[in-house]
Each structure stands twice: as structure tokens, then as C-alpha cells.
């Protein structure tokens, strides 16, 4: 019982990570893949923040009334990670938009199907 209580936060994190991973590898739609990636990223936030929490502690803003604070270091790291995350997400979306313009679709299978003849051709040329 205590083992479950002690590690529940890790398992919640894990579940989110697995769901994100599954979306990324199982779905062919590029926008959906980016959503999966973003979900995976939030699991990393939890992984960092959860161990820093102390039960009975407060947010790390110094005041006279409190003596116990949660660990501020993970907060700093994740704070910057979120903003960087959205910037890279925008970069990914920009690439998706360009792919859509080049191929007319954002489904991975259709892009591969379009690429197949071209690849075949270059292979033939090489021979």
C-alpha cells in the first residue's frame, strides 16, 4: 500500500508519457503527432516537478510565516522548458505547413505514396 502511495506520482507521469508516445508512433497525421509530442513533453514537466514537492511545504516565495518550501530548482528548469517548448512547437507547425504546401496533404502515408515513384526513379538512374 505504501509503495503505491509513494510512487503514484511517477506512475501518473508514466501513463501520460506512454499515451504521448503511442500517439506519436501510431498516428499518421503530422498535426496529431505534434499534439502527441506536446503531451509527452507535459509528462516531462511532471517528472521534474513532482519530486520537488514536499508535503506541508509551500511555493518557494520566502515569507516569515513559512519554514518549509518546495524545491525551486525544477520550477526554474521547467519554466524555461515550457516557453522553449512552444517555440519549437511553432517551428514544427511551420514545417507541417510547408509540407502541406509541397505535397497537398499532412498524412504520412500519402506523402510516402507520393515519394515512392520519385525514389524508384532515382534508384533506377543510379543503376
Amino acid at each position: 500500500m505504501t509503495a503505491i502511495a509513494n510512487h503514484f506520482s511517477y506512475w501518473a507521469t508514466l501513463f501520460i508519457a506512454i499515451a504521448g508516445l503511442y500517439i506519436v508512433i501510431a498516428r499518421g497525421n503530422l498535426v496529431k503527432k505534434l499534439v502527441g509530442l506536446a503531451i509527452f513533453q507535459t509528462s516531462v514537466y511532471l517528472l521534474y516537478i513532482a519530486p520537488g514537492k514536499l508535503i506541508g511545504g509551500t511555493a518557494p516565495i520566502i515569507a516569515d510565516k513559512f519554514a518549509v518550501y518546495s524545491n525551486p530548482l525544477p520550477h526554474v528548469l521547467i519554466l524555461t522548458a515550457i516557453v522553449v517548448g512552444v517555440a519549437t512547437l511553432a517551428l514544427g507547425l511551420a514545417i507541417v505547413v510547408r509540407i502541406k504546401e509541397a505535397y497537398g496533404t499532412i498524412e504520412e502515408d500519402e506523402i510516402l505514396a507520393q515519394e515512392q515513384p520519385a525514389l524508384q526513379q532515382t534508384a533506377d538512374n543510379k543503376m
Binding site: 514537492k53 514536499l54 511545504g57 518550501y69
Partner: peptide, 25 residues
């Protein structure tokens, strides 16, 4: 989990900016 700064960023970035970015994409 006591991470008020992070929560604020997540609410503004995740729910605000990324949703708008996805929608415009």
C-alpha cells in the same frame, strides 16, 4: 505541486498560445 510560476506559464502558453497556433495551422 506548489509550482505556481510554472502553472501560470503552462496556463498561458499551453492553453492560450499553442491552441491558437494549432488552430491557425
Amino acid at each position: 505541486l506548489d509550482a505556481v510560476d510554472v502553472a501560470m506559464t503552462e496556463a498561458a502558453v499551453g492553453a492560450g498560445i499553442s491552441t491558437i497556433l494549432f488552430l491557425s495551422a
